[in-house]
Amino acid sequence: MGKLIATVIRRDLLLAYRRRADVLTTLFFFVIVVSLFPLGVGPEMKTLRLIAPGVVWVAALLASMLSLHRLFAADYQDGTLEQMLLAPQSLAAIVLGKIVAHWMVSGLPLALMAPLLGLQFDLPPAALGVLFLALLLGTPVLSLIGAIGAALTLGLRGGGVLLSLLVLPLYIPALIFGAGAVEAYVVGVSPEGHLSLLGALLIFSGLAAPWVTALALRIAME
């Protein structure tokens, strides 16, 4: 099963590499949205420090929404998804591989870039570290939960908007604990509680989401 997951990850990363433009637009979207806030709000350091975690997290949610609909749509259209459903292995394992690959090209780069973007908000270095950690734990949750929504809206007309309406409310816990971790640190409280809850969220969605997504895909293909 590990070999199958590795095959899927390698395949999806290769496909993403051949379509670099799609990946880069998502990342630039994140960079631009985050950078607009200091320009719009003005150079008031205290305000910027206060809004920074929320802004970065909301931008990360929106950026991850942008790439979600691509998770299964291409495979659905060219018939590859049928082959995945008929593979003599667990569909949940294939789905997990796709989610991991999706995170590696759409979530991980956000976490890596966030500390740099946080400088615009005058966040102290240690707070940038917390922001990075929170995104590292939180962005896989976005890919996992998003996959369920992507599978449920597969093949529907106007699925993109419906996907946002379906998935964004489910992102709220990740948003609260993710942004909360950095806010807590900025006001001088330990972020440990928030990060632990994010970790718990990651474990729970990591165990449940691949199965639920696999089920939703089977229903979508009927």
Partner: peptide
């Protein structure tokens, strides 16, 4: 077990254009 015995080739090619 059944799927191991099955080869299905559908109407669509299941070929990735970028590969």
């Amino acid at each position: 077990d059944f799927r191991r015995n099955l080869l299905y080739i559908g109407h669509q090619n299941a070929v990735k254009e970028d590969l």
